[in-house]
Design a protein around this nucleic acid. Structure first.
Lengths: 226, 226
DNA sequence: TATCTTTCGATACACTGTATCGCTCGATGC
DNA sequence: GCATCGAGCGATACAGTGTATCGAAAGATA
């Protein structure tokens, strides 16, 4: 085909200069929309109208990209309020809120040490609010709360996903999990479990999270105030 | 090539009849040796002297295999001792011990609801020991402890891996993480963090885990005994 | 202007999980 | 005893992954 009849290449938007920030934002958009397993270097590159290997000029590999995503999420996680208890409580709630907004965070939290600037800044705001507390107690307190939050959020998101997966088609739930549990508990092999499931009040996710957090904060309070 | 000159197929050890148990054990061996990312259906199949698709007769996909691995690990996780506090404490320690033995467990714990027989049995032994406790308090108590353990173990294993990764070649550590933190803290942007890192006593992993757990159990005790 | 150096990214590789579907083998009917 | 059918198995194929390699292009230096 002659040049004259061959159309010019569609003039792509001039390849906007890349940056870690743009790469991370693209990855986060993908993860928000379709989950962490939808984040591939190829898809990220495509979203930025760039060839995949280009990304390696900005990041060393996929793990680094995930680290950067987590650090970006930490930008929204800040402690507020006065006093150690309120600082720890608000930090915990902020973490949970972030994980609700970015469910993929639940998959990543606690998976690798977080030393990025936003994560450090997040820690700094917490520690700053614990100035009155004995310096040797600070680390264990914060570590305990962070551990609780990571585990609680993971469990909560995992459950939410399971519900969503079966809820998508009600029939699947009707036909699988519900009856399975019913049948299993009916075997009598798990009597204590059956009793609790049958008789106990069932808290919603908010209440469960807060109850556990209050347990922990109460315990901390008892230790540092004696 | 004629049959006569073509060697007989090497008589493989008669393909031992497969079972979920054998599949899961093979997967666990791989994960124990080289981490979770070394577990692929192909490698598992090879280890069992079987072609990959054969596995789909026993499991529906890779996720199910991972679920089965976690449930198998729960076989070792049991609460012992008398009274709710000792039950919760021993359950937590057993979970941590299992994760030390199978580090991949840290990657999986809390990632999906666990409803397998061993996980349920594990829960049953805990609940059985909480018979004296008000039935409405049982779930929040157990949920809180489980959440704490999941998060604490994840953080601990993540840190251990990071240390091992840099410790492999001391030079890498010398040249990266240590100085990075030093420099970052020296910027003065994280004064509270710097103070704690400099002045606070540093607990080892065992102490950190137990301290946090004690916070939580103390808090629970305060709530249920009033 | 000519040579050297460095950067860059297309291609290629090894590997993943799993859908598809031709073939084999056992059971059934004549 | 033989032919036909059915079901299930698993080899092959596919679409995707992360990233090493290395030729080519661009920039710096003499």
């Amino acid at each position: 085909m002659l040049v004259w009849e061959r159309p010019e290449p569609p003039d792509r938007p001039v390849p906007a200069s890349l940056s870690r920030e743009r790469i991370v934002r693209a990855a986060i958009d993908l993860a928000d929309a379709d989950g962490l397993e939808a984040v591939s270097l190829r898809k990220v590159a495509t979203a930025l109208d760039v060839r995949p290997m280009r990304l390696y000029g900005y990041i060393a590999g996929k793990e680094e990209l995930l680290d950067l995503m987590v650090d970006a999420a930490y930008a929204e996680i800040r402690a507020t309020g006065d006093g150690w208890r309120e600082a720890l409580r608000s930090h915990a709630e902020a973490t949970r809120r972030a994980a609700h907004e970015h469910e993929w965070l639940a998959d990543l939290l606690g998976g690798r040490p977080q030393l990025g600037p936003h994560a450090l800044a997040s820690g700094e705001t917490v520690l700053a609010a614990l100035g009155d507390v004995d310096v040797d107690s600070v680390m264990p307190m914060v570590a305990a709360v962070k551990a609780y939050v990571i585990g609680a959020v993971r469990r909560e998101i995992a459950e939410r996903r399971a519900e969503r997966a079966t809820g998508m088609d009600e029939k699947h739930w009707q036909a699988s999990l519900g009856p399975y549990l019913q049948r299993t508990l009916a075997t009598g092999r798990f009597p204590a479990l059956a009793t609790v499931v049958r008789d106990a009040a069932h808290l919603d996710a908010d209440q469960t999270f807060r109850t556990g957090l209050d347990f922990l904060l109460d315990g901390i309070e008892a230790r540092i105030s004696n």
